[in-house]
Nucleic acid binder design. Structure first.
Lengths: 143, 143
DNA sequence: ATTTATTTTTGGAATTATTCTAATTATTTC
DNA sequence: GAAATAATTAGAATAATTCCAAAAATAAAT
């Protein structure tokens, strides 16, 4: 429930870099996301955050998630029309959504795959981000 | 504005296969999507559909897009939290979203790329679909 | 062919995730 | 510590989509 010194420092630096203040709420939301390394929705983050900071509001959770994303400390993950989820894993990875269990699993991707994907683009295109989402059935959901 | 015989047949077969009826509205929505091969939202489809079928309702457009998707005649495309778009290109392809022009471009992907992506999955996982969305700047938007 | 049963369409209301607003509170700067 | 700036809050507003119940269309059964 407490942000480790190195993450606290990372947070402060990232916020400073983008000209924003370090606040109790931002720190708390960040710690909530780091604590259980899954892919919670804003509502879930709100529920978890409230348990040790009962006065925090949903609007603030949305605000914090937004600033954390902008500062590059977390990532947003979207599946179809479902509510946006938030992810503290900053490495280059894709997401696998298991239609059976609802589980979302990070899939680490070798650079070579990304290179191949970039090579598929027409000349003159510059890429900022590639979002890759699998769906299917995860290992636990097989017989 | 008129569905060609081969597409009419394809529509009827696909609907029959999934136990649904062929209706004027479904046919019309399908033709609207095929006519201009871009990536319209439901609202845009509604606007285009109304011009030659003024009585069609937005709810029906949503219904038709849903049944066409379920029958495998069109695909849904999602970018972040933006409204769902619909795409008549059924080949294996990704989408490039140009942040400058808003343009969405189909990117054809060689099988090898898909194979590499599948290979990145842990053992025991089965994939149903892989959604790949690039964003960045397209060729037209460079100096 | 009519009747009966099943699907679709329709317009509007309801839902849901998210954003906006204006007032209050906290943080930084002078 | 006072003034300026930024962040938080609660609740209202928004926007895409879905739900609903009645009317219309299509198919099946007599």
């Amino acid at each position: 429930m407490q942000l480790s010194p190195e993450y606290k420092e990372r947070l402060d630096h990232a916020l400073e870099r983008s000209g924003q203040r370090s606040t109790k709420q931002r720190e708390h939301v960040f710690s909530v996301i780091l604590e259980k390394r899954d892919h919670p929705t804003a509502d879930e983050v709100y529920a978890r955050a409230k348990s040790s900071m009962p006065t925090i509001s949903l609007a603030t959770v949305y605000n914090c998630l937004e600033t954390l994303s902008e500062s590059g400390l977390i990532r947003q993950v979207n599946f179809e029309r479902e509510p946006t989820r938030y992810c503290p894993n900053l490495t280059q990875h894709a997401h696998f959504y298991c239609k059976e269990s609802g589980e979302i699993v990070d899939i680490e991707l070798p650079d070579s795959v990304i290179d191949h994907l970039k090579a598929a683009l027409p000349d003159g295109y510059t890429v900022q981000h590639i979002e890759i989402a699998y769906d299917g059935k995860c290992g636990d959901c097989h017989d």
